[in-house]
Design a binder for these strands. Sequence first.
DNA 1: ATATTATTGACCGATTCGACTAATGGAGGG
DNA 2: CCCTCCATTAGTCGAATCGGTCAATAATAT
Lengths: 204, 204
Amino acid sequence: MNEKFFSLPQEKQQAIINGGFRVFSQNTYKNSPMSEIANEAGISKSLLFHYFHNKKELYLFLWDKCVEIANKLLSQHGCYDQTDFFEIMERGLRVKMDIFRLYPDMTKFAIKAFYEKDIEVGAAIQESYLKYFSQMGNKAWGSIDHSQFIPGIDVTMMYREMNWAATGYMWEMMQRGKIDVTQIEEDFTNLLAFWKSVYFRKEY
Amino acid sequence: MNEKFFSLPQEKQQAIINGGFRVFSQNTYKNSPMSEIANEAGISKSLLFHYFHNKKELYLFLWDKCVEIANKLLSQHGCYDQTDFFEIMERGLRVKMDIFRLYPDMTKFAIKAFYEKDIEVGAAIQESYLKYFSQMGNKAWGSIDHSQFIPGIDVTMMYREMNWAATGYMWEMMQRGKIDVTQIEEDFTNLLAFWKSVYFRKEY
DNA sequence: ATATTATTGACCGATTCGACTAATGGAGGG
DNA sequence: CCCTCCATTAGTCGAATCGGTCAATAATAT
């Protein structure tokens, strides 16, 4: 790719990146036209090809960008050095929210890319996925204090359920064209409060 | 559309319908090629155009099909005449599961269609949506006995949360190429059991 | 063998694809 | 005021693909 891309003003870079996320998340790799991405970003198709020499290059760049963004935000929110369960949960949600605010279609893109089966890019995605995420795991999991929850609860199931709810909510939001960040903030706060009220031991 | 379509063997109809659901759910309306749908269905493009005279017709037919399928399965599972909360929830999940088994991409298609903004089909979708769903509402909601849940719980929030979790789970499953129905059945059973164990008053 | 139906390959003009080239235009230095 | 430089674009390329048609073929029934 053309390194000059990085010396563009930040907002223009974001516009291009978001345009890519958008179109690639709405269509298959094969059926995603470069022209549409250029339009979405507010630049000409020629310029897009100036920065990224071909479609595949742009696609894989966006994939790498996902990892970079996620990592940056996770560490920014101090997610890597938390031990309290709800603290991790809360910060995780805030990361998701930030991603959603800055790059509304990134999540959808990442998941779609992960399952993309087009031979031109599928292999490369899978390969780099292993490189980035395989060693991550969540180390924090082992250190959770089970006594803070209501007695007899299936903690693993609780965790999965919470994640599904967060995912489902995000998905519902992602479908809508325009997003209301304050609405999301409010919903997340309510969701967290609800979880605490139900799963937490009352004396905590 | 060509009425002969309905005299096709059921499995061939399903193949075509699922092909349509698939491609339209993976791409924008504009970027969904008829040829791809034909391939997915295992027939020639010409034959597809023989049954559906143009793309728009097929698209709107599929939309109507969603309503028909949902209605049929909902009444088949007796969802319309339930009063108990968890009973409704359980049967609702089973309907979702059936849809998922018979028409794996229908849900995704329906939601994507609902938010489709292409002028060629967007208006028609919105219009028919109002016709079908506006009067539905959920009448059952008012008759729910709040005393069956743990005291002090926010029932509305609980309901939303459960729906989000179900949505999130389905979404996670939808991304994977191949689906494991027994796995889903098991997960749903566990999910329901978990909810009961947490939200229900113990003496019930 | 014939009539009828189901299905397709080949093809249409128009459009769009990814990609390239040459030109435009504005900012900055002299 | 000119010149250089570089971001940006309109215009263009051949190839591919689009939605859609139709005559020909394969399958089926009579």
